[in-house]
Design a protein around this nucleic acid. Structure first.
Lengths: 217, 217, 217, 217
DNA sequence: CATGAATGAGAGTTCATTCAT
DNA sequence: TATGAATGAACTCTCATTCAT
C-alpha cells in the first residue's frame, strides 16, 4: 500500500497521544495504537525503536516546544524588561498547552507515576524548565525586596501553568470557561498577570487585585 | 507459616495502596504486591478474586468512608442548619483524605484514566457523591437567589476537595504548607468557608473576602 | 495436571539438550522445547528465567562435573604420583563426556560461536579448565627436561579430550570404534597414555610407541 | 549511488561468510550482513532470493571448487597412476580450504546442525564427495588386497581433510603449526601421504613410518 | 539497480490466575 | 489458610521479505 511520505509516523504519534491520554501508557498496547493509526504494529518499532521510544517521542514533542517558549523569552531578558519577558513566556506556554491539550494532560499525569522508564529524559527536561523559570522570575524580582523565596514562586508558577490541563474540570468550572474555549487563555493570562504583579511590584497596566479575587471565588 | 487472622489481607491492601500510588494500577503486578506484603501471590486471588478485586477493595475502602461523611451530614440537614452541615462535611472529607493521602491521590488519578475496568463501581460512587453534594449545596442555598447554577457549585466544590491530593505540590507551595502539615486542614478549611459564604450569603463569623484574596495571591 | 516434583525441570533440561544438540541454540525455540518436554512454554521462564538461563543451566550441568574431575585429581597431586593423577583425570573426563555425548558435543560446538551471550560464564569455566590442566601437566613434568612448552601440551591434551565428541565421526572410523561403543574409552585412554608417556618419560607399563603409530594410521 | 558491476553481490557474500563464521547462520541477520557490506538489506533478497539463497550461494561457492578438485583428479584416473591422482586431489583440497578458511570452517560446522534448510543441496554435495573419494580410493586400492573396507577409508580421509579447519586449534598445536602458516600444507600433506601409503602399498618415495609417529606424538 | 517503507509470522517473555496439596 | 507449580493469553519486539519508487 502506498502512503504519503511521513504520514505513517505522524499517524502513529497522533494515535499514541490519544490513547496514552485515554488509557494511560501502560494501559495502551502497541496493537491498540497500530489499529487506531491503521498501520502495522511493526512500524512502531521501525520508526520509534519500540513502545518506550514512542513515549519518548511524545515527551520530546511536548517538552521541546514547551521549553523553547521559556528559553526564547529567557534569551530576551537582556534587551527587554524582565516582567514583559515573563508574561510573554507564560502566555506562550498557555497557548501551546491549549493547542495540545491531550498531550499536555497525558504528560503531566504520567510523570507523576514512578515509571522507571524514561526517567532520565523527563528529569532532564524538568531541570531545564526549573532553570528557565528561575531565571525569568529572578530577573523580574531583581530590584524588588523579595517577600517570598524564589523557589516558592517557581513552584507556584509551575502549578498555575499546569493547572488548566491537569485539573481542567475544576478550573473550567471555577472560571466559568475551560481551556478549550476561545477567550479562556486571555482571561487566565490576565489572572496570572495580576498574581505576578502582586509580588513583582510592577503594576503599570493592571486593575486592582480585588477584582480578580472576587472573580476567582 | 501461621499469621494472625486478617493480617494477610490487611498486608495485601496496604502494599497494594503503596504500589498503586507509586507505579499506577497497570504498572503494578500482583507479584510486586505479594513480595511487598511478604505473602504468596496466590493469596491475592484467594482473598480478592484477582487483581481487579483488589483494586475494587481499595476503591471501596476509599469511597465508603468518604461518602459516609457526606451521607451523614446530608442526613443531619433536617435538624441542623444547612451551611453548618456542609461545612462539617467538608471538614470531615478533608480530614479523611489527609489521613489516607496515598489512597486519595491514587484514586483521583486512576479514575481519570479510562480503565474500562471497575467503570461501574466508580461511576456509581461518583453518582452518590454528586447526589450528596447537590443536596448539601441546595439546602445551603435554599433561601438564596442563586447567582450560579448549582451544578457549577458542585463541581467547584469537588475540585476544591480533590485539589490538595491531586496537586499537592502546587497547593502546598501556594499555601505555604502542605496537606501533610498539622494546621493545613484548618487553614484550607477556613479558605473554603469563605468561598462558601461568598455565595451562601451566610457570613456570620467570617472575615471579609478580600483578606482571603490577598492571602491567596 | 499433577506431576512428580522436579520432573518438569528435568524434562525441560533433557529436551533442551536434545534440541540444542540437533538444531543449535539459535535454531531451537522455547516452544520447541516446551512441546518436546510436554510442558507449557511459560515454565521455561519460570524455572530458568528465560531461554538464556536454560542455556546456562546446560553449560553448568556440563562444566561443573567436568571440572570436578580435574579439580579432584589436581587435589590429589600432593599425595599421589602426578602422572597417575593426570591419567585418572583423563579417564574420568572421557567417561563423563561419553555419558553425556549430546551435551558434550553441543557445548564444544556452541562455544566456538561468538555468541555474545553467556560469554562470561563460558570464559570463566575455560579459565578454570586451563588452570587444572596446567597444574596436572606441570606436576607430571616436574623432574623432566621439557622438550615442549607447557602451553602446547595443554592445548594438545584439550584437543585430544574434545576430539571424540567434536569429530566423533572421524575418530570413530579411524579407531574402528566410536565413543558410544563399550571399549572405546579403554582403547582411547590407552592411546592417550602412550602419548603422555612419550613426553613424561614415565613409561613403566607401556608398549613401544611404534605399535600405537601403526595402529593409528 | 553507482557501484561497479558485481561489486554489491560480492560484498554481500564476503560479509555473509565473515558473519556466518563468527555468529552462525541463525545468529546472523540480513541486516547485520547489509550493514557490514554497506548495502541495503533488500538487495540480499534481490540478488539471492532471501537469506537461505545467500546461504546456498555460500555453500555452492565452497562445494563447487571443492568438488571440482576431486572430480578433475577422478577424471585423470584413466591416464595417470591412481595414487598420484589421489595425492594431487588431497593436496588441492587442502590448498583450497586453506585459502577459504572462514568459509570452510563455517560450512563444516553448520552442516553438523540439523538445519532442515538447505538439506537437499548439502546432501547432494556430500553424495558427490563420497562418490569421488570412493572412486579415487578404489582405484588406488585396485590391485591391493584390502585390509580395510573402503567405506572406512573414505570416512577416514574425509575426517583428515576436514580436521585442520574444524579443529584448527587442536591441529595447529599438535603439529607445531597451523593451517594459516606457509608450510603447514606441505607438512600435513606429507603426513597424509604416509597414511595413504600405509594401506595402498605404494611406498616409492616415502620415509619410514616411525619418523612420522615420533613426530606426531 | 538500489532504496526506504511496510508487513506478517513468530520469537521470548510477562502476567494474572488456577489447582492440588 | 497458605503455597509452589503450572497454565494460557497477550504483549513487545525482531526478522526476513516485499513493493513502489
Amino acid at each position: 500500500m502506498t502512503t504519503q511520505k511521513g504520514t505513517t509516523k505522524e499517524a502513529i504519534v497522533e494515535a499514541a497521544i490519544a490513547l496514552f491520554y485515554a488509557k494511560g501508557y501502560k494501559g495502551t498496547t502497541i496493537r491498540d495504537i497500530a489499529s487506531e493509526a491503521k498501520i502495522n504494529p511493526a512500524n512502531i518499532s521501525y520508526y520509534f525503536k519500540g513502545k518506550q521510544g514512542l513515549l519518548e517521542e511524545c515527551l520530546i514533542r511536548f517538552f521541546e516546544p514547551y521549553l523553547a517558549c521559556l528559553e526564547e523569552e529567557t534569551g530576551k531578558l537582556e534587551k527587554d524588561q524582565a516582567d514583559h519577558c515573563l508574561k510573554r513566556a507564560i502566555k506562550r506556554v498557555l497557548v501551546f498547552q491549549s493547542e495540545h491539550k491531550l498531550l499536555a494532560r497525558f504528560v503531566w499525569r504520567e510523570i507523576s507515576i514512578d515509571s522507571q522508564t524514561s526517567r532520565e529524559i523527563i528529569s532532564s527536561y524538568l531541570m531545564k524548565e526549573r532553570f528557565f523559570l528561575k531565571n525569568l522570575i529572578q530577573a523580574t524580582l531583581k530590584e524588588q525586596k523579595m517577600a517570598f523565596p524564589i523557589s516558592m514562586l517557581i513552584i507556584q508558577l509551575k502549578g498555575i501553568l499546569m493547572m488548566p490541563y491537569v485539573n481542567s474540570l475544576y478550573v473550567s468550572e471555577v472560571w466559568g470557561m475551560g481551556p478549550h474555549e476561545p477567550y479562556f487563555i486571555d482571561k487566565y493570562h490576565l489572572m496570572i498577570s495580576k498574581w505576578l504583579e502582586s509580588w513583582s511590584g510592577n503594576q503599570t497596566f493592571v486593575k486592582p487585585i480585588e477584582s480578580v479575587a472576587s472573580n476567582h471565588y
